[in-house]
Design a protein around this nucleic acid. Structure first.
Lengths: 190, 190
DNA sequence: CGATGTCCATACGGGGCCGTATGGATGCGG
DNA sequence: CCGCATCCATACGGCCCCGTATGGACATCG
């Protein structure tokens, strides 16, 4: 059967796909090997063990998925439009063939059981929240309110990601947009 | 050793605890038996198999956890105060000794992999969202906006539950309160 | 007291997965 | 052609869990 050749990157991508589909519990070496039409021997050549793969997955996600959303809207001056761009970017369905919402959601379910994972995800969350707060400050909120509302908006995004996984009909983007728009437009005039 | 006696309810409670702690994957019959200091023989006397237990867990959650939040605030007239009461109720840490946030969050991670579970949870979500929308309508929003904002607030609640599980310091209730307050106070005057 | 029903402990076979050991295949420099 | 390194397939032992089979403890009742 052709027996293609696979490097570490292929295993990571396959693991990301499995993670998005079935959570971290679905990332099984023998399962991935079957899906890639290869064998465990290949895997254990490239990785020490399963934790090594999972760490690589986290690295990959942190490198690929973090900067994109933030950097894409950095050129927009008007804070309301900039917020809109960030929100739109966060709501896109897939990124490099990977389902963003399912990945983010599965990642956090994983984090609930692995403190090391929790720490790394929390760091990313902090950066994202800070970025949202930064934009909100530009719309007129004071620092404290901006931080709180940015956090609240981020909560809503994570919740939306969750619901998208198990009940897509309920996960209407419009609800999230309405929430953000309400926050932005009712900012105090400075 | 004593070798206590256990009925189905004890197994369900133990399963709920395990679910909150380690997700649905942590609900293992032999694990629960060890924790209860009994054996699988007891379990398989009361339940047909593992799916039967999980179904019973869902039934238990739906019966216990759903009505409480909603019915507690039904007597309050003022919509803003009523919303506040509902939010406060949703943010309490534990309920009957069970960690609400962890349970809700774990339940949704489970739902992502089990369509049957997803359906049942989605039904509960719909009821809760409708209730939030109902209150928002009383504050002056039109039906459409109320539905959207209610959904958005519910997303934020779910996100808060998630973050509570893996990064408690980031899961500040104040952020959620600020979000809701902002929505309520900026309602159109009718 | 014997019979019957309830409830539980233990042993067993089976499956899925992990990580290792080992040998084969392939390519490349000498 | 030979030696060596890279990469992969397969087999194995071990662990954990499932569900079943079987027998024992205990109470109740005729």
């Amino acid at each position: 059967m052709a027996a293609k050749r696979y490097g570490p990157h292929d295993w990571i991508v396959a693991a990301m796909a499995a993670l998005a589909e079935g959570g971290i519990e679905a990332v099984r070496i023998e399962k991935l090997a079957r899906r890639l039409n290869t064998s465990k021997g290949s895997f254990y050549w490239h990785f020490a063990d399963r934790p090594a793969l999972l760490t690589a997955v986290l690295d990959f996600w942190e490198a690929e998925g973090t900067s994109l959303v933030i950097s894409s809207a950095d050129t927009i001056e008007n804070p309301a439009e900039r917020m809109r761009a960030v929100v739109d970017a966060a709501l896109i369905a897939t990124e490099q063939g990977i389902d963003v919402a399912r990945t983010e959601s599965a990642l956090r379910a994983w984090a609930a059981e692995e403190p090391v994972v929790a720490q790394r995800i929390a760091r990313v969350d902090e950066r994202r929240i800070a970025y949202l707060a930064e934009i909100l400050e530009l719309t007129g909120y004071d620092s404290t309110s901006a931080k709180r509302l940015g956090t609240g908006i981020y909560f809503a995004l994570l919740g939306l990601y969750d619901v998208r996984r198990y009940a897509p009909p309920l996960a209407v983007d419009h609800a999230f947009h309405a929430l953000v728009k309400g926050i932005v437009t009712s900012a105090p005039q400075k």
